[in-house]
Amino acid sequence: MKLQHYLGGLEGLGPVSTETRVFVEPWEKRIFGIHTAMMALSSQLPLPVTPSTFSTVWTWADLRKGAESLNPFDYFRFRYYEKWLGGICGYFIAHGYITAEELDALTEDYYAEPGKALPSAGEEAIDARIVQYLVEGDSPKREAEVNHAFAVGEEIVVCDVPTIEHTRLPGYLRNKTGTVETVYEGAYTYLCDTGPDGIGAVMPVYCVRFDPATIWPGNAEPNFAIYADLYAHYVAAPASARQAA
């Protein structure tokens, strides 16, 4: 169990930040740009081959796995893009693109001389693919015949699946009962196979409405509803959930 999968409803955290800037330090822009370039050059996308030497997969799932693998204290201690910087450096080292030693050494160089220029290199086709990715996106919708087991207005129970590394099931919804608000047309995959957690294959997705008073009895604000988009693997009919219990 990872705290990062159970953030919804956590108490005792103090006031929220109302900071409206996207990047709170100038350097944060650069790691965002690197991440997005990696997403665009990731090998599973059906985009033109370029001279880039990037030959592996990098998606949101990889970025999220990195953040979710942190010690929970570090998850709260570091800002958003600090987590990205750590995760992305770790990925390039783990996949042998760079070594920790050369990264550390060059970090010292730029630390001593922050204005030192970046190298000049690279072919236009690489940046053309980055723009093409931004324009076209990477839809998880797939052409497949799937059985939509639930209809709008039906009650479902959220399963308590054995999540390990990564999930798209918010922890606070596990074992809770909700009502289907929308049955999304078609079927959807996810960016990776989450193993025993159960998503990755093509399946329906439902938008489900929950009454917060059933999630946090006696401890939820009045007159509000919470909605979540849930992959079909995460929901079951109330009767079958009772049978399994």
Partner: peptide
């Protein structure tokens, strides 16, 4: 400094 070093290495190695 670290993000600049990373970007420099990725350019040098032909990734971006």
């Amino acid at each position: 400094a670290r993000v600049r070093a990373l970007e420099a290495l990725l350019i040098k190695k032909g990734i971006i």
